[in-house]
């Protein structure tokens, strides 16, 4: 059997060298400036290995600067999608901290690793087959009953949600509380990976919101009205025109669109 390393290259490369090469290639692209122009540097430890990175980078860009290339575990880069969960410890602190890598700035002597995915069962269910009852939550997620109210989920949430409160709302069958408190969840999974009771909080919340939406939340009048307008063909002409536009024309139209002030 041929030795892979010998056949794949004439010179034996060690992993450090490969990483350094990739890092070199991605540096200027990531930070947008030449290394010579960077004033402040910090040392971070990615999975235990030290890297010098510019101090103003986020964890995500710092990792790319260091040579990591994200195929998965990254998404919108704006703090909305929940794909780049990260856990870290700061220098001299025992607390394990959590955040989104795209939203968290590196600090000197920070130890970190990415948790881009949390294994969680996601059963499929048909909402029309279920009653609006707390037992539906327990039927699909019986581990809900194991909550010890330790509040670790809340501490882990990068969205600053009161996760324990919405889990407790779920236990009480308070669908409104569950739906409203969990509304801004981005399903990053950090609560679930920290939960000592092995609860997958965000999946329970999603089922809860769906049940609440189907059975309890008031019907939005504006949506009903808009759907009627669409059915009546109010926007047909406009749609026809838009679909005919070229990419450039579409982009210009998007840039010039009327929008509410931020």
């Amino acid at each position: 059997m041929p030795n892979k390393e010998e056949t794949s290259s004439d010179k034996k490369l060690d992993s450090k060298e490969i990483m350094d090469r990739i890092a070199e290639a991605s540096r200027q692209v990531v930070s947008g400036v030449e290394d010579e122009e960077v004033e402040n540097w910090v040392t971070i430890y990615i999975m235990g290995r030290a890297y010098e990175v510019p101090a103003d980078l986020t964890i995500l860009t710092a990792m790319e600067y260091a040579g990591y290339k994200f195929v998965r575990g990254v998404g919108c880069r704006q703090g909305f999608c929940g794909a780049c969960s990260t856990v870290y410890r700061k220098k001299g602190e025992y607390k394990l901290q959590t955040g989104m890598a795209c939203q968290t700035r590196v600090e000197d002597e920070m130890y970190l690793v990415q948790i881009p995915f949390v294994p969680a069962e996601k059963p499929s269910y048909d909402l029309t087959e279920h009653e609006y009852d707390v037992n539906v939550l327990f039927e699909y997620y019986p581990e809900l009953a194991r909550c010890v109210s330790c509040n670790t989920c809340t501490k882990a949430c990068p969205q600053d949600l009161e996760v324990m409160d919405y889990v407790q709302a779920a236990i009480k069958g308070d669908f409104k509380g569950l739906a409203e408190e969990s509304f801004d969840c981005i399903q990053c999974g950090l609560c679930a990976i920290r939960c000592p009771s092995e609860i997958v909080q965000y999946n329970i919340a999603q089922l809860g919101r769906r049940l609440y939406g189907r059975y309890d939340s008031p019907e939005p009048e504006h949506l009903k009205k808009r759907l009627e307008e669409i059915e009546e063909g109010k926007f047909d002409k406009e749609m026809k025109e838009i679909t005919k536009l070229s990419r450039e024309e579409l982009e210009r139209m998007y840039a010039e669109r009327k929008r509410e002030e931020d």
Partner: peptide, 8 residues
């Protein structure tokens, strides 16, 4: 049926 009946 049990899962539907059982109280929390």
């Amino acid at each position: 049926d049990e899962m539907k009946r059982l109280p929390q």
